[in-house]
Amino acid sequence: MRAANFDDNPRDGSVKSTVIRGGRMIDESDAAAIDVRMIALPGMIREVAAAHGELAFLKMDIEGAELDLLEHMQAEGLFDLIRLTVAETHEKKFRDLRPRFAALRAAVGAAHPVTRVNLDWI
């Protein structure tokens, strides 16, 4: 889904694109939706780590979709396969998800130093 103002300003509007509903100023109508190919990042992380020992760096900025993924990565121990993960979280855009973001931050902060997993990279 794209920003509600995408047609008026495609360049600036493209940075708000997301695959989850409930974001501020997002056009969730079927007419505005576009299909995108997605891959399963956890599987890719495991494959690369198996082939190379670890991933050196993972940068994540996926407009709210990071919450489910980061929770899964924490639960499955995937941060241990990555030397440094940085993520921009979007709790300000998704008010209803703020309690889950807070719980994730607490769990990640207790398990990993900010030099390993940084949820405030921007």
Rank of each mutant, 00 (worst) to 15 (best):
A3Y: 09
A3I: 08
A4V: 12
F6I: 13
D7F: 13
D7E: 09
D7P: 10
D8W: 13
D8I: 12
P10M: 02
R11C: 10
R11Q: 10
D12I: 14
D12S: 13
D12A: 13
D12N: 15
D12L: 15
G13Q: 00
S14R: 15
S14E: 12
V15S: 15
V15T: 14
V15C: 15
K16L: 14
T18H: 03
T18D: 08
V19K: 12
V19I: 13
I20C: 00
R21F: 13
R21A: 11
G22R: 09
G22C: 07
R24D: 05
M25I: 08
D30S: 15
D30H: 09
D30R: 06
A33F: 04
D35R: 15
R37A: 15
R37G: 12
M38L: 15
M38W: 15
L41Q: 05
E47S: 09
V48W: 08
A49P: 03
A49C: 01
A50T: 00
A50F: 02
A51D: 01
G53I: 01
G53A: 01
L55M: 08
L55H: 02
L58Q: 06
M60R: 02
M60S: 06
I62D: 07
E63F: 08
E66I: 07
D68I: 00
D68R: 14
L70P: 08
L70D: 04
L70K: 04
L70V: 06
L70I: 01
E71D: 12
E71I: 04
M73Y: 01
M73E: 02
M73L: 07
Q74K: 12
A75R: 12
G77Y: 11
L78C: 06
L81C: 09
R83E: 07
L84W: 02
V86E: 06
A87P: 07
T89K: 09
T89D: 04
T89W: 04
H90L: 03
K92R: 10
K93D: 13
F94P: 04
R95F: 14
L97E: 10
L97A: 08
R98K: 11
R98G: 09
R98C: 08
R100S: 05
A102T: 13
A102K: 12
A102V: 15
A103T: 12
A103Q: 14
L104Y: 10
R105W: 14
R105C: 08
R105A: 06
A107G: 05
A107W: 11
A107T: 14
V108G: 08
G109I: 03
G109A: 06
A110E: 13
A111H: 03
A111G: 00
V114E: 06
R116T: 11
V117R: 00
N118Y: 02
L119C: 01
L119Q: 03
L119V: 00
W121C: 09
I122E: 11
